[in-house]
């Protein structure tokens, strides 16, 4: 199978538990929930073999971890929003794909490993996405972590490895990226009815990003990632990585049909549910400054090498 056909469509959605646990608290949460429900139906009708998730709320340190427990089961509670309730889950994981993804990542120079342990703490973002998008576990899933130290080249190569694995196995995937747009939350507890985007600046940037998504300009967003990180992302990690991974996994171009199903505040952060479907409606590709890396060679050890 041509690997451009391996990704049926991509989804960008937020990690917060409100649409799952408390959609009734705010019309915006309800809108987000309706968007998830809409995409749930599209996924179920898509003929997908797998739902592949990249979650920004699963940080890793030792390389890139890939969930490989065939039926992970637990009751998850969010660190901040524990008062909204518990999230019991039992998922159906495609362990063959997990192994293939690990192998593909290693073939491209990445350190990667599968994890398959009873009670492993699957992160809030993955639990929310899988619970809402695939509630009956009809389609097997796989989840990959976001390494906290990785930057652009490593993340791009990780995305390319996902394409390799899909291509090698001949599987059709729905790709899900779990991430906020602006991720600055209010630092105090709020009445959900009063929820809004934290600042006009965050809101304006979010709307600009949504414009790009609507136009199918995923590669352009990937190239803008460092600007986005500096402008509207709190500095928890080195970079804003989800669009790098999404672009690399979906083919690094601007040929998508984009649909923003919902954009709402989630305790001040920007939560958007977006669908990107490969198409021929390109807005045009550009020449960009940064290298398109195929193989990850690790840190360059600039300090150790001096002038060599």
């Amino acid at each position: 199978m041509d690997n451009d056909q391996n990704v049926l469509f991509g989804i960008y959605c937020p990690p917060h538990p409100h649409p799952l646990l408390a959609p009734e608290l705010n019309d915006g949460y309800k809108n987000l929930r309706n968007a998830y429900d809409n995409l749930r139906d599209k996924i179920q009708a898509s003929g997908a073999d797998i739902i592949l998730i990249y979650s920004t709320t699963w940080p890793s340190i030792v390389g890139h971890q890939i969930q490989a427990h065939p039926e992970p089961e637990w009751t998850h509670v969010d660190d901040d929003f524990h008062y909204l309730g518990s999230m019991p889950y039992k998922f159906n994981i495609d362990t063959e794909f997990a192994d293939a993804y690990r192998d593909a990542a290693e073939s491209r120079g990445l350190h990667s490993r599968t994890v398959a342990y009873d009670g492993f703490p699957i992160d809030t973002g993955s639990v929310v996405a899988l619970s809402l998008l695939n509630p009956d576990n009809n389609i097997p899933a796989c989840i990959v972590s976001s390494n906290m130290y990785s930057n652009r080249s490593e993340t791009m190569v990780l995305g390319k490895a996902a394409r390799d694995a899909l291509s090698n196995q001949g599987k059709k995937a729905v790709v899900v990226v779990v991430a906020s747009l602006s991720n600055r939350m209010f630092t105090e507890h709020i009445n959900p009815r009063d929820d809004k985007i934290h600042s006009p600046k965050d809101d304006e940037w979010n709307k600009k990003i949504l414009e790009f998504f609507r136009d199918g300009r995923l590669e352009d967003l990937s190239q803008l990632s460092r600007d986005i990180h500096g402008q509207i992302r709190i500095q928890k990690v080195a970079a804003y990585k989800p669009v790098w991974w999404m672009a690399a996994t979906m083919g690094q171009h601007n040929n998508y049909h984009g649909e923003v199903l919902a954009y709402e505040p989630l305790h001040g952060s920007g939560g958007a549910v977006i669908q990107l479907t490969p198409s021929n409606e390109s807005i045009g590709d550009k020449e960009f400054d940064e290298d398109d890396v195929e193989y990850y060679h690790g840190d360059r050890n600039v300090l150790d090498r001096g002038n060599l």
Partner: peptide, 28 residues
């Protein structure tokens, strides 16, 4: 890690399994 204030454990007993999300191979 909490982003909305400081939280305190508020129940008298907790009993479960802790699996390290970073090093699950060595801590269960």
């Amino acid at each position: 890690a909490t982003y909305i204030g400081t939280h305190f454990l508020g129940l008298p007993k907790f009993s479960s399994l802790s699996v390290d999300p970073i090093f699950p191979n060595i801590f269960r």
